[in-house]
Amino acid sequence: MSSLFGKVETDVELNASAEQFFDMFCNRPHHVSNACSDKVQACALHEGDWGNHGSIVCWNYVHDGEPKVAKEVIEGIDRNNKSISYRVIDGDLMKDYKSFIFKIQVIPKSEGGGSIAHWTLEYEKLHHGIAHPETLLNLATQVSKDVDSHLIKGN
């Protein structure tokens, strides 16, 4: 019997600095759609301030070809380690999951510049018939690559 709890992770190689990439997801997530409007249409602030713990943001995105919505609270920010975690509190993911957390940590590369975005998705499925969210992890990878290209162009 498999557990309803799960975790999937991936690393995405970036040309942008850890500071640039972290800043985009922490302080300017409403600009992510500028880099990949085919995947993320909008990120709106519902409560609090951009880049602050406890703030609530709402993402409009496309997953598996379908428009989706995720309302998330910024649960943790560690500016020194360039990590941020978002807990989903409402939206499409709550149809399949009891809890869902997106974590991003951006690690500077020691040589040659660039960085690595480490994504972790932690979740609890509502029942065993729900698939693990690998396609969502793939979406995070694609969005990361688009944001990286956008940052490198200096936009």
Rank of each mutant, 00 (worst) to 15 (best):
A140P: 01
S33V: 05
E134M: 08
D23R: 10
V8R: 00
K39H: 10
W50M: 12
S37W: 00
A70D: 12
K95V: 05
H46C: 13
K82G: 00
V8A: 01
A131L: 06
E19W: 05
N15Q: 14
V106S: 00
G48W: 08
A70T: 10
I84R: 04
S149R: 10
K95G: 01
V88L: 09
E72D: 11
D92G: 08
A140C: 15
Y86G: 11
K68I: 09
I116W: 08
S99Q: 14
R87T: 14
G6E: 11
H127E: 13
S55L: 08
S17L: 09
V8N: 02
E122Q: 15
F5W: 06
E47K: 13
I56N: 07
S55H: 06
G154W: 04
K82F: 04
L137D: 00
I89G: 10
L137H: 00
I152D: 12
T135N: 06
Y123N: 07
E134F: 12
D23T: 04
G54M: 09
L136H: 03
V88P: 02
S37I: 00
D148F: 02
K145L: 13
P133T: 06
A42E: 04
F25G: 03
H127V: 08
N80Y: 08
G154M: 06
V147M: 00
S85W: 10
K39D: 08
A16Y: 07
A35S: 07
V12N: 08
D49Y: 07
H63V: 12
I130W: 01
R87N: 14
N60T: 13
V8P: 04
G154E: 08
E72F: 01
D148G: 10
C26G: 11
I89S: 05
I116N: 08
M94V: 13
E111Y: 12
P29S: 07
V12M: 07
Q41A: 13
T141M: 03
E134K: 04
L151C: 04
F22C: 14
N138P: 02
S99G: 11
L45G: 06
T141V: 09
P133N: 09
N81C: 11
A117M: 09
N80T: 15
S17C: 12
H150I: 01
K98V: 15
C43F: 01
A42L: 02
I104L: 15
S110E: 15
S149H: 11
I84T: 07
I130M: 00
C36F: 03
R28E: 09
Q41F: 05
N27A: 14
I104S: 01
W119I: 01
W50E: 05
R87F: 12
C43M: 04
H30E: 09
I74L: 15
S3W: 14
Y123C: 05
D146T: 01
I104M: 13
L137N: 00
S17F: 07
C58L: 09
F22K: 09
L4T: 07
G51K: 06
E75H: 12
L121T: 04
E66V: 14
D11K: 14
F5I: 06
E13N: 15
L4H: 11
T120V: 15
W119M: 03
W59Q: 05
H118D: 08
E19N: 07
